[in-house]
Amino acid sequence: MSHAIERASELALNEKTVTALRSVLRTTADEVVQAIIDEVPSYANALSGRMGGTIRRAVRTALGHYLDLAGGTTTGVDASEAAYELGRGEVRDGRSMDALLSAYRVGARVAWRGLAIGAVSAGLPAAEVAKFAELTFAYIDELSAASAAGHADELAARGLAHERHLEQLARDLLTGASSEVLLAAAGRANWPIPTTLTVVLLPAAQARPAFRSLSPGSLVLDDLSDGLGVLLVPDTDRSHLLRTMKDREAVVGPARPWMRAAASYERAVRARSLSPAIRDTEDHLVELVLTADPDAFTDLRTRALAPLRALPAATAKKLEETLRAWLLHQGRREEVATTLFVHPQTVRYRMGQLRDLFPDLSSPKRVLELTLAVGLAAP
């Protein structure tokens, strides 16, 4: 039992006074509700009809409980618990704590006015009226505090539930769940559906701090394997996102339609495995393409560069380097020589050797195959 409720019994109001006060309860409850409607905008349309009647009964019950205590009657009513549940209900109805506290302030003022009239008319001595006022306001303050606690607890519970729904949505997106699953998850999380999502992969410890700098609607997970975290950023300006991640160990995947966010995640994961230095996957598409299927790339190199295998290793390496530079510089001998730090005549000589080894070097198909085969340095 609360302190104010315990002290209510100190009044020991006589039966005549309690009866007089009870006679004004109904009118007082009506006046309290009307004053709240008039003075607290959030309740202007909320306390009409059935809801208004419910609140009037709640006011009468709370004040009646107080009068029972003040008159020395033991009651099984738990007004604090009812006030706590009222606070939780206000969250469900979409009203703020400020609105609820304003309603309590207005209600306390109007309730005391009605009770004071009843107390004075019953002949309660002035000293007792003063004590009655003090304890009445203390009682209503404690009910207000109980409602505030209920309001805060409901917000916390809803916040936790909402966060869990958002985390589940993020997991469903990363695993490539079906459109039906994703739409249902987005609905449960009350998540505004974007056009695209861009995945950012980074150390788990950096995920939450980075998340706080992102736009609303972003999603975060910081419990992936290997100590990694992930951000899913909606409809972002890529340049801005890269600047935001500049000082973090982040890999930024491509923007993808929101239901295909898993593709952005997979590319970021592969880019990170390719090199810890990669930050923007869009700057490394060649490497990503050529390493997408390591076995296929190895088979391609083996077949395309087979003529070099019969040569001494040092010679084969020099000719492969020359072939790569020749293909990338489209046969411009001076540029090839500059790239390889050799004389142009050396380039001419090596290219003669290569043409002997690859008689079809002018074939577009052969050029494409060789370009892919030597597109990356030999492993």
Rank of each mutant, 00 (worst) to 15 (best):
H3G: 01
N14D: 15
E15Q: 13
T17C: 08
T28N: 14
E31V: 06
V32E: 01
Q34S: 12
Q34P: 04
A35E: 07
I37G: 08
E39H: 07
G49C: 00
R50E: 08
T54Q: 10
T54S: 09
I55W: 10
A58K: 00
A58I: 03
A62W: 12
A62N: 12
A70R: 08
V77P: 03
S80K: 07
E90M: 15
D93R: 12
A99H: 13
R105L: 14
L124Y: 11
T136A: 03
Y139H: 02
L143I: 00
G150T: 04
D153Y: 07
E154V: 01
R158H: 06
R158T: 04
E163T: 09
R171T: 06
D172E: 10
A185D: 11
G187D: 11
G187A: 15
L202G: 02
R208A: 14
A210Q: 06
S213P: 07
S213E: 14
L214S: 10
S215K: 14
V220I: 14
G227D: 00
V233I: 15
T236H: 10
D247N: 14
P254K: 06
R260T: 10
S264W: 02
A277V: 01
D283L: 07
L290W: 04
D293S: 12
A304T: 07
R309I: 08
E321G: 12
T322I: 12
L323Y: 01
W326Q: 15
Q330E: 15
R333K: 12
T338I: 00
Q345R: 14
R355T: 15
D356C: 03
L357V: 12
P359Y: 08
D360I: 00
K365G: 09
L368K: 05
T371I: 05
A373Y: 03
G375S: 08
L376N: 00
P379M: 05
